[in-house]
Amino acid sequence: MKYRRVRIEGGCYFFTVALADRKSDLLVTNIDALRAAVKAVKANHPFTIDAMVVLPDHIHALWTLPQGDDNYSMRWMLIKRHFSMSLPKTENIKMTRMYKRERGIWQRRFWEHTIRDERDFYNHIEYIHHNPVKHGYVSNAKDWPYSSIHKFA
């Protein structure tokens, strides 16, 4: 099935990317591997991270792509691949994933929203930064260590 996604060259997008096992804490226990994956992809396929939060089982991010570029899907695929390759193969892999040579760490898809205007942009930054509070990880957003809120403070 081919998903229809809005693609705007140089656009700004909000993403939610999740692990297959929503009870996992792989993203925070392997935060250095995730950071390395993002850094490697940004080096070869630049983009701006306007805001980002990493929770144990999912990521929220707000990105702006360079002018003339709309390929956020490729970037997420590469980040997922780099991260997955850095981990030992200990997860349970379903036959359908084995057939497609997938690890089973990530959900196959991700959710994206095209940012429409400045208000939408700032509303999503606020959502990203307060997500650890919403999930009960901290009582103050500034206390969550895996957030871009520290760049804003």
Rank of each mutant, 00 (worst) to 15 (best):
R101V: 13
K134E: 15
F152K: 12
F83E: 08
Y146K: 06
F83K: 05
M95L: 13
A33M: 04
R81K: 14
Y72N: 03
Y3I: 08
M1I: 10
N140K: 14
E118I: 05
E102S: 08
A43N: 11
N92G: 00
R109F: 10
R97P: 00
K2Y: 07
A43R: 13
D25N: 13
D117R: 05
A61R: 01
A18D: 03
C12P: 00
M95D: 11
D69K: 04
P66V: 09
V53Y: 01
I49N: 02
V54K: 00
A20F: 08
Q67L: 13
Y122E: 11
V6P: 02
W144D: 00
H150G: 08
I105D: 06
G104F: 08
Q67E: 14
I93W: 07
M98S: 13
I125T: 05
M1T: 12
P88G: 08
P145H: 11
G104W: 07
E112G: 06
R97V: 02
R101H: 15
P88T: 07
D143M: 14
R101E: 15
H113W: 13
C12K: 07
G68D: 07
L62Y: 02
M74K: 13
I115N: 03
L27C: 09
R109Q: 12
F152N: 06
K80L: 08
I93S: 10
F15N: 00
I93V: 15
M52F: 09
A40Q: 13
T16H: 03
F15H: 04
R22D: 11
Y99E: 15
H113V: 04
R4L: 12
T90C: 03
N30T: 07
H45F: 11
D32A: 15
T29D: 02
V53R: 01
I125D: 00
T64C: 11
V6G: 04
G68C: 05
E102W: 09
Q107E: 15
S73F: 03
H130N: 15
I79H: 01
A61K: 01
D21C: 11
N131V: 02
I59K: 04
A40N: 13
L27N: 05
L19E: 02
T96Y: 13
P145K: 10
I31A: 10
V138G: 09
I105Q: 07
L65P: 02
R5I: 10
Q67C: 04
H58A: 04
L19M: 10
V28I: 15
N71I: 05
K100E: 09
F15T: 00
I49W: 00
L87N: 02
S24D: 10
R108I: 00
I125H: 01
S86L: 10
V41C: 02
E102H: 10
I49A: 07
I93L: 12
E91A: 12
S148Q: 06
D57G: 01
I79M: 08
K94A: 15
K23H: 12
A18M: 09
E102K: 10
D25E: 12
F121C: 00
R116D: 08
M52E: 14
V53F: 03
G10N: 07
S147G: 05
G104C: 09
V133W: 05
L26R: 12
M52I: 14
L34P: 03
M98T: 11
E9L: 03
V138T: 12
L62H: 01
P46G: 09
P46K: 07
R97E: 11
T48M: 06
M98R: 15
M52D: 11
K80N: 09
